[in-house]
Design a protein around this nucleic acid. Sequence first.
DNA 1: CATAAATATTTTAAACTTGAAATATCTACC
DNA 2: GGTAGATATTTCAAGTTTAAAATATTTATG
Lengths: 150, 150
Amino acid sequence: MVTDCTSKDRLRLWLRLLRSSRAIENELRERLRREFDVTLPRFDVLAALHREPNGMLMSELSRYLMVSNGNVTGIIDRLEADGQVVRARRDGDRRASIVRLTEKGRTEFEAMAGEHETWVAELLGTLVPDDVEKLSTVLHDFNLNWGTKA
Amino acid sequence: MVTDCTSKDRLRLWLRLLRSSRAIENELRERLRREFDVTLPRFDVLAALHREPNGMLMSELSRYLMVSNGNVTGIIDRLEADGQVVRARRDGDRRASIVRLTEKGRTEFEAMAGEHETWVAELLGTLVPDDVEKLSTVLHDFNLNWGTKA
DNA sequence: CATAAATATTTTAAACTTGAAATATCTACC
DNA sequence: GGTAGATATTTCAAGTTTAAAATATTTATG
């Protein structure tokens, strides 16, 4: 049996997706601030850099986090001032800078990461495993297909 | 057969949800600016007010859009300065103000709403109808259950 | 009635965010 | 080699966003 799907159905899905996303994001922001005195954007940057021990270009960070270049510049400026990241020159290209976690940045991120993961699991706790699996797959495909249209 | 689900699985889902949400939001922001010269936050406020012809309290807007009170104050200030909304006193309570669309605001929103809906349908176009239905249901339940834990 | 607590909003400072312009550097082509 | 275009980042102005404090008003309680 074929289920139809109007543009209003897709609009409704978008609004629900946005609402879920904001709810989770707001709660994580508040807990990160309260427990670790860190902002969500800074945590996101630290998490991205932690995945790449060899560092990332400013433009790679921008693309990965889906925020503007200028935005990344500001956050890295503040993280660098606090000694959690460093900018290094890339061999043979004086335009690019590679950003890396410092030892301090790595240690501080790792102290937060476990608790953050626990929070996420708790906040998504009302979803049954089958739905976690289903949503994860569908959204992963959605993200992979994204480039092909927008 | 029972599918297990670790905290890493839920973390992965969260990252994918966030990525989808940001991708769609960024694209809508850009199109709204390009086609209608309006910011996304302003569009969101206009959309909320359009659903409530009798107006909304500042605090209702804040709760509905899941942003802070101060944030709503700023956006409404700018919308009011541009004549798209008005603040009115609520009978018997001089603390509260009811915000309503003006005729101008309503007209301008309605000129954008159709195209906005078309864009969303297009951007979610890679999802097959069954998945739209499934995600919509799961996320709706998720949102309903949200209050019971966070 | 007085006043403490609750409610609704605004104000403020700091951080975040975008989009566009500016700067600096590199690459490709003549 | 010189120069146009591409690439990487920063700067900037305006707007958004939060969290906390301040203001104003209403409600509840003794």
